[in-house]
Design a protein around this nucleic acid. Structure first.
Length: 758
RNA sequence: GGAUGAUUAGCUCAGCUGGUUAGAGCACUACAUUCACAUUGUAGGGGUCAUUGGUUCGAAUCCAAUAUCAUCCACCA
C-alpha cells in the first residue's frame, strides 16, 4: 500500500520544524542528556564541552561563521551520540572597537551625534542594538543545525561574565602584572583610542621622502660640513617632515665614515630653532636615505627606543586627534599632520634647507578596524605584562598539552609567544567593560606621579599650581570607595580591550573558577575558529586559562579554512561579492551547505564558494530521502511488527556496514571530516543505493507480503538504513532526523535520531 | 627582511606513518532510464603528481636545492 511520504525533502520548511523538535527535547543541555543516558541504560561517559566562539554582536553572521558552526556541530553531535553529555555553549561578543565604530556610524546616519548623546545613553542604546543582532544571529545558528545549549547563551558584557573578568584584573594587579605606563602607543586618530600592536596592520601607501638640511650651530661645524657635503649641515631624509618639530637628535651610524667627525656636535633644528645633538647609533642604516636619521621619540616607535637608550628628551608635537600641538610656532598649532607637512616643506624650501622631495611607496601602520593611518604618540595606558603568561603557554604547547591543527600554525603560535611584548589593554572607548579603577585625587595626578618617580604631591601642586584633592593612590573596584578624608575619587574612563574579556571565554562562560558549570565542564575539549584570529584569541585564551585555572582551557585548537567569494577573493560587504547564508539555506538547505564545508573548508585552506558543489550535496540529501522513502514504501504495514522484532542476520552487507561505521567514527575522531564526508556519501550512495537496494529489489520481487524472504531482506535493509542514518547524522542532521521521524511514525524506530547511540 | 604552508584531472581539493593500473566532488562525452530519486544509472575521456637532484628493491609520499603562489609576522627613517 502507498504511504504518504512527500517526494522530496523540503529542506526550507522541514529543517526548521526538525530543529524545533530538537529544541523541545532539551537534549542539547548536557544535564538533560545525562539523565536521558542514565534512563535509557546507556553508558555515561565524560562530559564533552566546547565554548563556541562568540560572533560579534554588531552584525549578522556570514558563511564563515556558519562554517565554524558546522564543524562544531558535527563534533558535538558525534560526542552526544557516543555517550558524552555534550555542551556546546553559545554566546556573543561585544567586539569593543568594532561595535563602537559600527554603532557610531549607525547613529550618524540618523543624524545623531555620539558626543551629544553621552556615554550612558550611548552604552544603553548600543546594548539594545546588539540585542537585536544577537537574536538574528541565534536564528542563523539554529538554521545551520547547531545543537548548542541556548539556555546557557551568554554575552560578553553580561554582569556575571564581567565580574569574573574584573577578578582576573584584580589578581593581575596584585601579582604586579598590570600596571600603568607612559610610553609610545598606536593611536588611531579616527577611532580615537590607543591600540595594541596586534591591532594594527601594515599597508603600502604613497608618500614623500623629503631631504632636509639641519645646519650646524657653530661656524666650525658649518665649515666642515660645507667642505664635505657642500652644505652647512647634515641632510636627513624623512617621510614625515611634520614630526621634525619634535626632533631631539640626529642619529648616524658610528661606522659611517661620512659622519664620524660630526658625532657629538650640535645642529640647529630649523623652524623650531632648537639645538639638538648628533648621536652615534648602531641601529641607523647607512644605506637608507642619507644615512642620517632624525630622532622623534614622541612620534616614532623606533625613535622612542633610541631616545630611551640615549636619554633624549621627548617633545610632543602631535595630539591624539593627529593635530599639531605642544611647544611649536603658533602658525602650526591645530594643523592636521598632512597640512603641516606641506607648510613646513614650503618654508624649508624658501629657507634653502630643502634639498629635494622624492615620491615613494612605503609601509605604514594602519588601524585594523578603520584602516586609518596610525599616529604613534606618547600616552598613559594600562598594560599587561604577558611575558610570564606567554612562557607558560609556550611550555604547554611544547609539552603537547595543546595542539593546533594544522600543525604549521602551532609554530606560528610559538613564534608569537617567543616575541611577545607588553599588551596595552586600555581603550579610550565607551563600549566595553569599564576598567574598575578609581583614582584618589584624579587620574592626572596619579599619572604625573607615576611618570615622575620620586616627586611628591607637593611637587604636583607646585607644578600645576593647584591643590591636590586626594592621596594619589588607586582603588580597584566597580563602585566608588567611601571618602575618608574628603578626597575626591575619579573613575577610570577607559574600557578593556575586547580581547581582554573574550580571551577568558572558556571559563567566564562556565561561571568562572568557582562556578557550578565550571566544575562539571572545564576544561573544555577543543576550540574551532578561523586562523585569522589565532593570535588574538587562542593565544590569549591559553595564557588567561593557565593563569586563572592552572589548566589549558582546551587541548585542541582546530583552525577552519577561510570561505571566499566565488571568484576567490575575500567576501566583503563593500565589494558586494558576499553571499548571504539565508540565500544558501533557501536554495539548497543547511545539510547541503554543511556537507560542502566538511568536504572543502579544510584546515589551512581557502575555499571559494562553489554553488555547483553545494548543489551536488543537495542532490545527495535528496538521494537519502528517496532511498529511505523507497525502503519504507516496500515495508507493508502488516510486516512492521515482525520486522521490528526480527533478529538481524550477520550478512556480508551487515558486516560491511559495521566496518563502514567504524571507519567513519575514526575519521571523525581524527578530525578528518573531509574523509568522513566523502565516506558517508560514497557508501550510502554507491553501495547502499546503487548496489544493495537494487539487489534487494530483485531478491524480494516475487515474494508475497509477510513471506520469510521479504522479512529477512527488509529487516536487513532497515538495519543498514538505520546504521547509515546514525553515522550520517552528525554531518547532515536534518535529513537524517527527517527520515528517522518517518520511521518513528511507522513504528519502525523510537525517539530522536539526535540522541541515538552509535 | 623573517616565518609557515602550498604546487596532483578543466575547477576545488583528498591521498595518514613510502608498496601493485594516482582518487573524490563538480564540469565534460556517450548510452540507458521517467521503474524510490526537480533525476538517476552505466560506461568513458582527461594527470611525465611544479622543476632538478638524492635516499630506497620501490617516491605524489622522505631529503636537498630551485621556481611560483598564498598567508602571517617585522620599527625601515
Amino acid at each position: 500500500m502507498q504511504k504518504e511520504i512527500s517526494k522530496t525533502f523540503e529542506s526550507g520548511k522541514r529543517e526548521v520544524e526538525i530543529y524545533q523538535l530538537w529544541e523541545k527535547s532539551g537534549l542539547s543541555n548536557p544535564d538533560i542528556m545525562k539523565e536521558y543516558l542514565e534512563k535509557e541504560g546507556f553508558e555515561v561517559k565524560s562530559p564533552f564541552t566546547i565554548t563556541l566562539p562568540p560572533p560579534n554582536a554588531n552584525g549578522t553572521p556570514h558563511l564563515g561563521h556558519m562554517c565554524g558552526y558546522a564543524f562544531h556541530d558535527v563534533i558535538g553531535r558525534y560526542n552526544r551520540m557516543t555517550g558524552h553529555p555534550t555542551l556546546l555553549l553559545p554566546g556573543k561578543d561585544h567586539a569593543g572597537i568594532q561595535t563602537e565604530v559600527v554603532f557610531t556610524k549607525h547613529l550618524a546616519s540618523q543624524g545623531i551625534d555620539k558626543q551629544k548623546m553621552g556615554r550612558e545613553e550611548f552604552y544603553k542604546e548600543c546594548y539594545e542594538f546588539c540585542i537585536v543582532n544577537m537574536k538574528e544571529a541565534r536564528e542563523y545558528e539554529q538554521r545551520i543545525g547547531l545543537s548548542a545549549d541556548f539556555s546557557r547563551e551568554i554575552f560578553t558584557l553580561d554582569e556575571r561574565l564581567t565580574k569574573i573578568v574584573y577578578e582576573t584584573f584584580y589578581k593581575m594587579y596584585e601579582d604586579g602584572l598590570v600596571y600603568r605606563d607612559k610610553r609610545i602607543v598606536n593611536q588611531c586618530p579616527n577611532c580615537k583610542t590607543a591600540l595594541a600592536d596586534i591591532d594594527t596592520e601594515h599597508e603600502e601607501r604613497r608618500g614623500i621622502f623629503a631631504y632636509i638640511i639641519y645646519p650646524f650651530v657653530n661656524e666650525e661645524g658649518k665649515k666642515l660640513a660645507k667642505e664635505k657635503f657642500g652644505v652647512e649641515g647634515i641632510t636627513i631624509a624623512t617621510t614625515r617632515p611634520e614630526t621634525m618639530l619634535g626632533d631631539t637628535a640626529i642619529a648616524v651610524n658610528p661606522n659611517d665614515g661620512r659622519y664620524k667627525e660630526f658625532i657629538g656636535k650640535k645642529v640647529l633644528l630649523p623652524i623650531a630653532n632648537r639645538e639638538i645633538p648628533v648621536i652615534a647609533e648602531e641601529e641607523t642604516d647607512i644605506e637608507t636615505g642619507t644615512g642620517a636619521l632624525k630622532i622623534t621619540p614622541a612620534h616614532s616607535p623606533i625613535d622612542f627606543e633610541i631616545g630611551k637608550k640615549h636619554d633624549l628628551p621627548i617633545v610632543n608635537v602631535i595630539d591624539e586627534d593627529a593635530r599639531m600641538t605642544g611647544d611649536i610656532p603658533e602658525r602650526f598649532k591645530g594643523m592636521g599632520t598632512i597640512d603641516c607637512s606641506k607648510a613646513l616643506v614650503k618654508e624649508l624650501d624658501e629657507m634653502g634647507l630643502l634639498v629635494k622631495i622624492e615620491n615613494i611607496k612605503h609601509e605604514v601602520a594602519i588601524c585594523e578596524r578603520c584602516k586609518t593611518a596610525i599616529e604613534p604618540i606618547i600616552s598613559n595606558q594600562w598594560y599587561l605584562n604577558v611575558e610570564s603568561l606567554a612562557q607558560r603557554a609556550l611550555e604547554a604547547l611544547k609539552k603537547g598539552g595543546i595542539s593546533v591543527i594544522p600543525p604549521g600554525q602551532q609554530k606560528a603560535l610559538e613564534h608569537f609567544y617567543e616575541n611577545i611584548q607588553p599588551w596595552c589593554i586600555s581603550r579610550q572607548l565607551w563600549w566595553g567593560q569599564r576598567i574598575p579603577v578609581w583614582y584618589s585625587g584624579g587620574k592626572k595626578m596619579f599619572d604625573w606621579l607615576n611618570e615622575n618617580k620620586g616627586k611628591s604631591i607637593q611637587d604636583f601642586e607646585k607644578e600645576f599650581n593647584t591643590k591636590a584633592t586626594g592621596s594619589g593612590e588607586i582603588f580597584l573596584g566597580e563602585d566608588m570607595p567611601e571618602s575618608q578624608n574628603g578626597e575626591i575619587w575619579e573613575q577610570e574612563t577607559d574600557v578593556f580591550d575586547t580581547w581582554f574579556s573574550s580571551g577568558q571565554w572558556p571559563y567566564t562562560t562556565l561561571g568562572g573558577p568557582d562556578g557550578e558549570d565550571f566544575k562539571k565542564y572545564y576544561p573544555t575539549q577543543m576550540m574551532i575558529h578561523g586562523r585569522d584570529i589565532l593570535f588574538w584569541w587562542t593565544a590569549r585564551m591559553l595564557m588567561f586559562g593557565l593563569y586563572r585555572t592552572d589548566q589549558v582551557p582546551y587541548s585542541l585548537a582546530l583552525l577552519t579554512g577561510i570561505i571566499l567569494a566565488p571568484d576567490g577573493s575575500k567576501m566583503s560587504k563593500s565589494k558586494g561579492n558576499g553571499v548571504e547564508p539565508s540565500e544558501v539555506f533557501e536554495k539548497y538547505g543547511a545539510d547541503a551547505l554543511r556537507m560542502w564545508y566538511y568536504s572543502d573548508a579544510l584546515p589551512g585552506s581557502n575555499s571559494p564558494l562553489r554553488e555547483e558543489k553545494i548543489k551536488g550535496n543537495r542532490n545527495f540529501v535528496t538521494k537519502i530521502w528517496n532511498a529511505s522513502r523507497f525502503i519504507l514504501m516496500n515495508i507493508d504495514d502488516s510486516e512492521v511488527e515482525v520486522i521490528v522484532n526480527a533478529k538481524v542476520n550477520e550478512t556480508e552487507r551487515v558486516k560491511s556496514t559495521k566496518a563502514h561505521v567504524k571507519k567513519v567514527k575514526k575519521y571523525i575522531e581524527k578530525c578528518q571530516f573531509n574523509l568522513g564526508a566523502e565516506e558517508i556519501r560514497g557508501f550510502f550512495w554507491h553501495q547502499v543505493c546503487d548496489v544493495w537496494i537494487e539487489e534487494v529489489k530483485a531478491e524480494i520481487k516475487d515474494h508475497e507480503i509477510g513471506s520469510k524472504v521479504r522479512i529477512e531482506k527488509l529487516t536487513e535493509l532497515l538495519y543498514i538504513l538505520k546504521e547509515n542514518l546514525k553515522i550520517m547524522h552528525p554531518f547532515i542532521p536534518f535529513v537524517t532526523e527527517g527520515v528517522w521521524q518517518e520511521l518513528v511514525k511507522l513504528g519502525l524506530a523510537k525517539g530522536l535520531l539526535m540522541s541515538q547511540q552509535i
